[in-house]
């Protein structure tokens, strides 16, 4: 594994949606103004920001599944090559894998085993993956609604293992999970990264992100305003530079639970 090898490079990405006003006129709603992240081999990068702030849109932009009224600016490169639609066709689903937020993304009418195998996986790989995540053999034959929340989550992750994923996009992997289960999910991510995957995790939950991530990118008001290592975060407020990031740290329940006015902080930073 080469820790310097860049898997995903997102440069100055902007995404806006054309929206209608009350009548017939339209305006552009810019969700992402300027987003820059770089994911290396073996790295877990967490993008942290308020929910509803448009982080998920980034994952959709990488996968090329934005709705038709969206327009994208900037550049996305995968392993040094520009990620075009034809390259996406080749890589998405095999090398680029998305782990969705919840089980509702699984096909409710298809047995879990079949979904995990997808088009390319073999029976051995499936058994191997299920064994690895402590899934019972009978889980293969179950439909998504028959799986418990934790099992479903492990099923979602095994889809990533079975394909030779190089880049995993995980959208809000932790909400609804207990702390144990969230920690377990993070452990699985760490394992995958240690095997050479690059993982881009999108979350609002810093505590979960800190358990596994190497790098944390702070997303606020359409921009990545700060990028720091997870160690900085663990060290505490003084190791952090940006005032918003500092406030984020202080707002954690275990660190003081201080409220702050985000827009005031941003003014101070400029």
């Amino acid at each position: 594994m080469n820790k310097d090898k860049i898997i995903l490079e997102v440069e100055d990405i902007s995404v806006s949606f054309r929206m209608y006003d009350k009548g017939l006129s339209k305006h552009d709603l810019t969700v992402i103004k300027k987003l820059n992240v770089t994911v290396h081999e073996g790295e877990i990068l967490a993008i942290v920001g308020a929910s509803g702030s448009g982080k998920s849109v980034l994952a959709h932009a990488v996968l090329g599944i934005l709705p038709s009224n969206a327009s994208v600016g900037g550049e996305i490169r995968y392993c040094g090559k520009q990620l075009t639609n034809s390259l996406r066709k080749e890589k998405v689903g095999s090398e680029i894998i998305m782990i969705p937020q919840s089980v509702t993304y699984l096909d409710p009418l298809m047995k879990a085993g079949k979904q995990v195998r997808g088009l390319k996986g073999t029976k051995q790989q499936l058994e191997e993956a299920f064994r690895r995540y402590g899934l019972d053999k009978s889980a293969e034959k179950k439909y998504p609604f028959q799986l418990s929340g934790g099992m479903a989550r492990r099923v979602l992750i095994s889809t990533a293992v079975i394909s030779d994923a190089k880049l995993i996009l995980a959208d809000e992997p932790t909400p609804g999970l207990s702390e144990d289960m969230a920690a377990e999910t993070m452990r699985h991510f760490r394992e995958l990264a240690d095997q050479g995957c690059g993982i881009l995790m999108i979350t609002h939950d810093i505590e979960a992100a800190l358990k596994a991530a190497d790098t944390i990118a702070v997303f606020y008001d359409g921009e990545t305003i700060d990028c720091c290592t997870a160690d900085d975060f663990r060290q505490g407020r003084d190791a952090l530079k940006h005032p918003y990031t500092k406030a984020l740290w202080s707002a954690l329940p275990e660190n003081g639970f201080l409220s702050a006015d985000a827009s005031e902080l941003m003014k101070g930073a400029l």
């Binding site: 308020a50 929910s51 909400p175 609804g176 609002h204 707002a251």
Partner: peptide, 18 residues
Amino acid sequence: DEMSTMLDAITQAQIWNV
């Protein structure tokens, strides 16, 4: 009921404090 689960830390602290 999990009122602040989907919120970022700053918003969570703000709403809870009020």
